[in-house]
Write a protein that binds this DNA or RNA. Structure first.
Lengths: 211, 211
DNA sequence: AATTATTTTAAACGAGTGTTTAAAATAATC
DNA sequence: GATTATTTTAAACACTCGTTTAAAATAATT
């Protein structure tokens, strides 16, 4: 079971690539199964429905990323008595890039899926994540709060959601942006480069002192 | 013509609300025409196709916002020899809030449409905007560039797109966020208040010196 | 080897999509 | 007021969608 070439895995692999590229509702089961070279009905046989397939695709990444992320943050906290925001955000880079071992281009795929999910599911994904990975999320929020103790909790709430928007939107359109950057500025970026670009931006935004 | 109650306007009004709430591909012409209380075929009669209806919905806002925005920036530039980033972003608040006169909740609707369009249209909207409102965009980008001359053009490109993500994502989930803020922090916000919160965040992010 | 359980398959189902058509209704023009 | 032009309408078209079905093929168990 869980063979790299069995039907279930072939479906997940094809689905995650297409979902990330085109979005969930724009990707038909017929397209997925034709790319995966499996029968159309096998999706409903193995996953029950398209909605459950979407969840399975997301869970395969979240189950790896979320524990790794909170563990990285805790490790960071033990190294530095008082980690900076940039250090906290940077500690997520490792777990993110490790997803490339899960699938080729796993990091980009995961972040794009996250972006698409947040935008398409109108809060449904937010509920799924907080209810399934709430403890890991709290680890992160607590680390941020401690690193900028002068910022009121309400402002941190708002700014972390601004940050979520930044990351999610950027990743959903990362392909297009990298293409434009290559054409207009002769920049050759990959997803790791985009992540490095976004960290100073979000760190400065969350930490800014102005009201 | 252009009556508030004629078929064409009723279609646009219903469409923009549904597009902003649910996205373009998730909104059927049948849903639009039933909410607008017009016949299904009238969309194709007046607009030709769904794709052209989407463009018309966006254009109705862009035609108002874009000139107002670039004019506000030019006015700002004459007041201050060297405007700060925060001043530049703030000068967009007026034109944004003025959209509420166009339609109830016009500001949020516009920003949500913009976000949906950028993500769903695979770069099609970006082309549409730059080709139709390129001069106004350049006014804005030039003002930003001049206010942070030490930032390379490529970094400005990336950070302005981060900013776009921050704003459209925040506006898309503004209702839910304001509700949470009210419950958890006893904050009573409206859209204008959220915009005031986001300006220091994006200003700090765009201006940050760290590589 | 025979029987049972699991998986795969082709075909169809019913519902929903954007679009087109041609006739009916309304408005504008002479 | 008769004749155009414009707009509205109901119906159908051709297509795609997720899902279901029941038979065929494969695997596992006894």
């Amino acid at each position: 079971m869980a063979n790299r070439f069995d039907t279930k895995t072939r479906i997940l692999d094809a689905a995650e690539r297409l979902f990330a590229e085109r979005g969930f509702s724009e990707t038909s089961l017929r397209l997925i199964t034709s790319k995966a070279e499996v029968n159309l009905a096998s999706v409903n046989y193995h996953f029950g429905s398209k909605k459950e397939l979407i969840r399975a695709v997301l869970a395969r990444y979240l189950d790896v990323f979320m524990p790794a992320a909170s563990q990285a943050i805790n490790t960071q906290r033990k190294l530095e008595q008082q980690a900076t925001l940039e250090q906290i955000f940077s500690s997520l880079v490792g777990p993110l890039l490790k997803l490339n071992q899960l699938c080729p281009d796993g990091t980009r795929t995961f972040l794009q899926l996250l972006g698409r999910g947040y935008i398409e599911s109108q809060g449904h994904l937010r509920w799924f994540i907080t209810s399934h990975y709430g403890e890991h999320l709290q680890t992160f929020v607590r680390a941020v709060t401690e690193s900028v103790p002068e910022i009121p909790a309400a402002d941190i709430f708002w700014r972390l959601h601004f940050t979520l928007g930044t990351v999610v939107f950027t990743m959903a359109s990362a392909d297009a942006l990298m293409e434009i950057a290559a054409a207009d500025f002769a920049e050759q970026n990959d997803i790791a480069a985009v992540i490095r670009k976004v960290i100073p931006y979000i760190s400065a935004g969350v930490a800014v002192s102005g009201k």
